[in-house]
Write a protein that binds this DNA or RNA. Sequence first.
DNA 1: AGAGCAAAGTGAAACGGTTCGTGAGAGGGA
DNA 2: TCCCTCTCACGAACCGTTTCACTTTGCTCT
Lengths: 333, 333
Amino acid sequence: MAATMRDVKNRTGLSLATISKYLNGGNVLPENKVLIEKAIEELHYEVNEMARGLVKHQTKLVGVMVYDVESYFSGKLLHYIGQELRKHGYGMLSCDSCNDEEIEAENLRFLISRKVDGIIVLPVSRRSTFLKPARQNKIPIILVDRSFQDEEFDCVGIDNKIAAYRAVEILLKHNHRDIAVIASNVEYTGIERIKGYEEAVTQAGIPLREEYIKTGRHIAEVGYEKMKELLASPNRPTAVLMGNYDIMLGGVLAVNESKFSCPEDISLIGFDNLMITGLISPSWYMVEQPMGKICRKAVELLLRRVEGKEEEAPIKICFGTKIQTGDSIRTLA
Amino acid sequence: MAATMRDVKNRTGLSLATISKYLNGGNVLPENKVLIEKAIEELHYEVNEMARGLVKHQTKLVGVMVYDVESYFSGKLLHYIGQELRKHGYGMLSCDSCNDEEIEAENLRFLISRKVDGIIVLPVSRRSTFLKPARQNKIPIILVDRSFQDEEFDCVGIDNKIAAYRAVEILLKHNHRDIAVIASNVEYTGIERIKGYEEAVTQAGIPLREEYIKTGRHIAEVGYEKMKELLASPNRPTAVLMGNYDIMLGGVLAVNESKFSCPEDISLIGFDNLMITGLISPSWYMVEQPMGKICRKAVELLLRRVEGKEEEAPIKICFGTKIQTGDSIRTLA
DNA sequence: AGAGCAAAGTGAAACGGTTCGTGAGAGGGA
DNA sequence: TCCCTCTCACGAACCGTTTCACTTTGCTCT
């Protein structure tokens, strides 16, 4: 059995209150300080954060729910958020929603029963209803990357419409006019990106074509299937915007398997940066999100809520994006 | 403030003991059961796992420490372990050691003060000394993938020597004789793999060449640098075994940047499977670890320790590996 | 020397659960 | 009808901290 404060008390002859004061940085006589430190050392005493949490009504634990840990984007997010949280003395309880709304709802209950101080969520669901139990328990929530229309939550991310708009702009500058998009239509983010695409194309005076707008779930398989459809089409586009990391993964796989090559036959621009960029030939044009900044801001915002400066209004924070250049776009005549 | 058992008690008129019995699946009169369920529903009551843990001396939390979350291997591991843990009602507290021994030691203290029930670790350090505090606190520990020589811990992984041996065997079968290896020499796993390489080469009657054995830290940069050295060497090898995922990442990057191409000029075989395999041309030969199995076993073993069947002796479990074929090896005349 | 006052120390009551030893009531057999 | 047994319910103690309201200690100042 691990040592407790009572053991330290017995060894030093001091009271629990004094030990507690020492542990929390209060003033203690130098000789007592030495005494306590010696006892802690000898007993290998470590504060029981659980007991502390019980009386302080905080666990120093933050729940992080991501739509799919296997996705590179989620993994990266977990990395940054975990690091940032630790810096502030918080632990991270991560949950994988496996792209499944039911699992997501169940994960939330789990986090609530764990009494986490706050939750950061990169959601699967399109509607915020599943977050209700957390609301009822007054647990602060920060949305990352994806937002909802139907209710007001704090949210940190990028302006997806503008980001997609800029990506299409690049393609237009290379004289492409037959531009398609493959994106997710199951979450707000994807829908915004499609809007950005439509706006850019329309503003360039090009009529929108139904067949050039491919949508589906936020998974690699969708990218793969839809890219195949585009390549097989009699009106094969000259360029494609792939609206998120997973779709890009599938899309490029489809191109590699086909008789067409990039950028000779088809120009590509993707979303979200990859660690593996250097491994791929040709290197890609990509819309890059400032993941580090996003995560730092999300944690900062959450902790402000947790520490309870009762600022009511939900805050939405948008960061700008960068375009990473590559060889995946061909300039047309 | 969230509802507590006391609220349920007041609403039902029953005692705390009865509510507790209900919550833990004990027998309660049907009418009381209905009463309790109604109260829980109305109050949105959720058990406070922290308070429960305090008296039961368990947090239902497992710490998982990985050497570097950014590494694909670590991410995958976290995914499987987290999933498995949840299945058993445990939460996962994940820590990133950032390839730094000091951070690793600090993370351990963090987990101990969090009173985790057990720890699964994919270590950075080569020596087990940093795990001492956990030992003193009698927290069960399972090592995954990497092991130590100097002390006895439970460990789940693969037989690294044999895996590397088999990889070299493949190269030999394709008539390669000038075979180099790039691997990590900072941890047991890498050292074992180098041994497997040496054994296979020696047994084929080929003398070992100092210049063909490149070692360094377990990071992509090492793979990049060492591969460059090999390619620039007057005795350029015809084939290279890349001893882990990160080194492979760097190694392939170096080849792509060079005037040489794979498999025409140089044959490659790597370690650990990638999600992105399909994206890369040529597709790679790789030694594949059964990650799912490894993680399931690690969790199973840990939970057995946690539940305290006091089997003393440390257990080492080795799974077999598979070779994934690809186009990255050329058959020599 | 004695009053006054910080600074440091203390005991006890929480926090939200579990569990153990008892007690009350229902049902069954003689 | 009485006794025994079985099922549920209950009160109180406890888990390892923090914190509140005091008390003690040791100085300084007059």
